[in-house]
Computed example of a mutant assay.
Amino acid sequence: MIKNRTKNVVLPFVFCFLIALALYPNSTLDPETYSTEGLELNYNISKDMAMVAEEHTTKQNMFTPHLGKSFEGFKEALAFKESRGNYFTVNTLGYLGKYQFGSETLKLIGIYKPNQFLYNPELQEKAFIANAERNKWVLRKDIKRFEGKQISGIKVTESGILAAAHLAGPGSVKKFLRSYGNNNSSDAYGSTVKHYMKKFSGYDTSVIVADKKARVTP
């Protein structure tokens, strides 16, 4: 960084000197007039200041949309938890894609070709919506009954319910709610219904319409 700053100061002087020689070849120019002697060119910047400047520049060059508690925020937060947002990943248990769908769940919403699903991001997004619509229909009475209540130390919200249903299925969510937290299922990696209900609470999922027959057309 110091070298670059020095170049930025010296080069303009050299450039001006060369232009002057080109325009006035017969004139007597005193090189001392263009000397950098005496100029303070050795800039010493502390490591902390350099890091702050670099971080500021990096932030200026980045665009990170703030999705907040919107439905898009809900989808992307859940996808990051499931797969870090990777459409083309398959976990050790064979769950597929950005939202980590199992083959049996895919069949429920009309998808019978896992390979086609894995390499089709648009289809994955449609599958997420259809699955959420179906889960919302299955859990419609429980959403109405328990939304806003405190269960096992967490506030029940629709988005938390839908996230937990995505993790463990709507049946497991029913058991959790109706047992008031005593029946807390988990997946093979240890993520629980309670954890998902808390982590993904408070998002706006009103765009999801409960639909018993929600399907995807590949």
Score class of each variant (00 low, 15 high):
Lys3Gln: 14
Arg5Lys: 12
Asn8Ala: 14
Asn8Glu: 10
Phe15Arg: 11
Leu23Thr: 09
Tyr24Val: 08
Pro25Phe: 04
Pro31Lys: 09
Glu32Lys: 14
Thr33Leu: 14
Glu37Met: 11
Leu39Ser: 10
Glu40Met: 10
Leu41Met: 11
Tyr43Gly: 09
Lys47Ser: 15
Lys47Trp: 11
Lys47His: 15
Ala50Gln: 15
Val52Phe: 09
Val52Pro: 02
Glu54Leu: 12
Thr58Phe: 03
Gln60His: 04
Pro65Thr: 04
Phe71Asn: 10
Glu72Pro: 03
Phe74Gln: 10
Phe80Lys: 12
Lys81Arg: 12
Glu82Leu: 06
Gly85Ile: 04
Gly85His: 03
Tyr87Asn: 11
Tyr87Cys: 08
Val90Arg: 05
Thr92Tyr: 02
Leu93Asn: 10
Gly94Arg: 05
Tyr95Leu: 08
Gln100His: 09
Phe101Ile: 02
Phe101Asp: 00
Gly102His: 03
Thr105Asp: 02
Thr105Glu: 01
Ile111Gln: 03
Tyr112Asp: 12
Tyr112Lys: 13
Phe117Met: 04
Phe117Asn: 00
Asn120Arg: 07
Leu123Asp: 02
Leu123Val: 04
Gln124Ala: 05
Gln124Thr: 06
Lys126Arg: 13
Lys126Thr: 04
Ile129Gly: 04
Ala130Asn: 03
Ala132Lys: 00
Glu133Asp: 05
Asn135Pro: 01
Trp137Ala: 06
Ile143Ala: 00
Arg145Cys: 05
Gly148Leu: 14
Gly148Lys: 10
Gly148Pro: 11
Lys149Asn: 07
Gln150Asp: 08
Gly153Ser: 14
Glu158Ile: 09
Ala163Tyr: 05
His166Tyr: 11
Ala168Ile: 03
Pro170Asn: 01
Pro170Met: 03
Val173Pro: 00
Lys174Leu: 03
Gly181Pro: 11
Asp187Asn: 15
Asp187Phe: 06
Gly190Glu: 08
Ser191Cys: 10
Lys194Ile: 09
Phe200Met: 10
Gly202Trp: 08
Tyr203Ser: 09
Asp204Asn: 15
Thr205Met: 09
Ile208Ala: 10
Lys212Ser: 06
Lys213Val: 05
Val216His: 05
Val216Glu: 06
